[in-house]
Design a protein around this nucleic acid. Sequence first.
DNA 1: TTTGCCAAAATTGGATCCAACTAAAGCATA
DNA 2: TATGCTTTAGTTGGATCCAATTTTGGCAAA
Lengths: 226, 226
Amino acid sequence: MSVVARLRKSISEGVYPAGERLAELQVANDLGVSRTPVRLAFRTLEQEGLLERAGKRGFRVRAFTDADVLCALEVRGVLEGLAARRLAEQGLSTATLERLNACLDEGHAVLAKGHLTAEDVTRWSALNSRFHTTILGATGSQVIQDAIQRNDHLPFASADSLIIDTERLGREYRKLCVAQVQHQSIVQALAHGEGARVELLMREHAYIGIRYDELLELDPKSEPPE
Amino acid sequence: MSVVARLRKSISEGVYPAGERLAELQVANDLGVSRTPVRLAFRTLEQEGLLERAGKRGFRVRAFTDADVLCALEVRGVLEGLAARRLAEQGLSTATLERLNACLDEGHAVLAKGHLTAEDVTRWSALNSRFHTTILGATGSQVIQDAIQRNDHLPFASADSLIIDTERLGREYRKLCVAQVQHQSIVQALAHGEGARVELLMREHAYIGIRYDELLELDPKSEPPE
DNA sequence: TTTGCCAAAATTGGATCCAACTAAAGCATA
DNA sequence: TATGCTTTAGTTGGATCCAATTTTGGCAAA
């Protein structure tokens, strides 16, 4: 695992708390390497937005507010919406359509039995990732993908960061049902070349990560943690 | 001037042609520094999208197609559109509105005499930059600004990269007149809290950089290079 | 007791050094 | 002559070294 990846992990796990200034030597010792790879990694992480310059010298861990997280989600929404619209306008290959339909089928299979298991969450995460990757990959230009990937390093901005609360699998099940319908609508719009529609659907779909929780809670008291 | 900035310049000027593999030592000698700052700069430039990894070792200058350039422009459009919509929805301060109106006034002054000079181009570039910076700055969250700034390093994606063709100041004058009206519409929409409208206006405004040229050419033969 | 200045320690940026890996060139053999 | 192997030159990744700057801590004076 590269120094950059390990540092990303440490930051997201709170080993280095938000706002903390990172000393090159300290981090180098923590990771068991010399300063050189750490210095290189700091530059990468700075561009990714996880670190920020601390005055004239050094870096600190970037702190994210709730507003920032929502913003990162909206950025993903508009970028993925742009990608989907372009794909709809340029037309998609049958191979792409088949891959997307395969994702829909598997999603249907995951949700068919009416409730969620831990294994289902893993399967969904994989198919969801495949779904989004397929659309982004089919748009051709690398530029949009790059912009999204850079944004994905921010917390909760990635399309993968969906399920967290395993205490409330009931609510999460309903959430995935909504996500499944959204995926279906997106494929329908893509297949018919409906650029404007697919863009709006994709933008709304981005909100599934954090803004649907409060909508899908049947009743706080009727569903005790399982 | 930092190593990163000098390298950016060299790449955009074609000193290192697209697709060329960059040797650390070679670049270090060219810039008169040691390998260390060059290696650090390579990581930054990679994240900015100007360099890409060449296999397992080293980097090469990224090549951009016309489609990539258009894509980068659209990315700017949707991101700046998002920023403007958020600003409209959250409401803008009187100070912000005043700054924007000052930009409009200066734009009006620049275009009042009915034609362009070299000095006018500089003035427009400055006020245009101020206009866009003001809107982005007023939205609050740094996340969108970061996404835009990263995208701006790609060729022609920046809001500043407007005027190039000093051979055709007539056409460029008409282009700036359109840009001025777009700026005015954007401020109007912002002032009235019209989020959806300002987003669409901003997205269209992004195209002014390259897609309006063919629209504003009165007649290729009627306007010889001045 | 508080404030300001000076010195010392820590830390970063840049340069050099070493080892590992890649690629190219040359030689030998079929 | 062509192909394949070996050796060698080059380049990158990582470690260490040096200088410069910043920050911290202590001491003195008001």
